Amino acid sequence: MIPDLGNYAVEVMSAYVLSILLLVAIVAVSLRRGRKVRGQLVKIEARKESANV
Results as ranks from 00 to 15, higher is better:
M1C: 03
M1I: 03
I2Q: 10
I2K: 12
I2P: 05
P3S: 02
D4M: 03
D4N: 11
L5R: 04
L5F: 15
L5W: 10
G6R: 05
G6Q: 02
G6H: 02
G6N: 00
G6K: 05
N7T: 14
N7A: 11
Y8H: 09
Y8W: 11
Y8P: 05
A9K: 08
A9Y: 05
E11M: 01
E11C: 00
E11R: 01
E11G: 00
E11Q: 06
V12E: 01
V12G: 00
V12S: 01
M13L: 15
M13I: 15
M13T: 14
A15Q: 07
A15P: 00
Y16D: 10
V17D: 14
V17M: 10
L18F: 15
L18P: 06
S19E: 11
S19P: 12
S19M: 06
S19N: 11
I20P: 01
I20K: 11
I20T: 05
L21E: 15
L21H: 14
L22I: 09
L22C: 14
L22M: 10
L22S: 10
L23I: 13
L23H: 14
A25H: 05
I26R: 07
I26P: 00
A28T: 11
A28V: 04
V29L: 11
V29G: 02
S30V: 12
S30Q: 10
S30P: 06
S30A: 15
L31K: 05
L31P: 00
L31I: 07
L31R: 05
R33D: 11
R33N: 15
G34C: 00
G34V: 01
G34N: 05
G34R: 04
R35D: 15
K36W: 08
K36A: 05
K36L: 03
K36Q: 08
K36C: 03
V37S: 04
V37E: 06
V37L: 04
V37I: 08
G39M: 02
Q40D: 02
L41F: 08
L41E: 06
L41V: 03
L41W: 12
L41H: 09
L41M: 09
V42K: 09
K43M: 09
I44K: 08
E45N: 07
E45I: 04
E45V: 07
A46Y: 01
A46M: 03
A46P: 06
R47H: 08
R47F: 12
R47D: 12
K48C: 09
K48Y: 15
K48V: 13
E49Q: 07
E49I: 07
S50T: 05
S50R: 06
S50K: 01
A51Q: 11
N52C: 09
N52M: 09
N52A: 13
V53R: 14
V53E: 12
